[in-house]
């Protein structure tokens, strides 16, 4: 995301030679896609709990009744 921001800034500053601008642009689009995919294709969120003996187990809230 930071790289994407940097690229936007670089491009908007405007004094980048065209050739470089195009390669930066390509990189920017790749990054944008990467960020977007990462955010959109949410995998099943893993919520684990660290047990007494240091093992991780799937966690779900035990309602206190």
């Amino acid at each position: 995301m930071q790289q994407l921001e940097d690229i936007v800034e670089q491009l908007e500053e405007g004094d980048v030679p065209l050739e470089e601008a195009i390669s930066i642009y390509k990189k920017g689009m790749e990054l944008s896609k990467l960020c977007h995919d990462k955010l959109r294709n949410v995998e099943e969120q893993l919520t684990e709990i660290l047990t007494e003996n240091g093992k991780k187990e799937t966690f779900s809230i035990q309602e206190e009744e």
Partner: peptide, 9 residues
């Protein structure tokens, strides 16, 4: 929702 959560009780 893309971050994992580790609960340390």
């Amino acid at each position: 929702p893309i971050a994992n959560i580790l609960v340390i009780p």
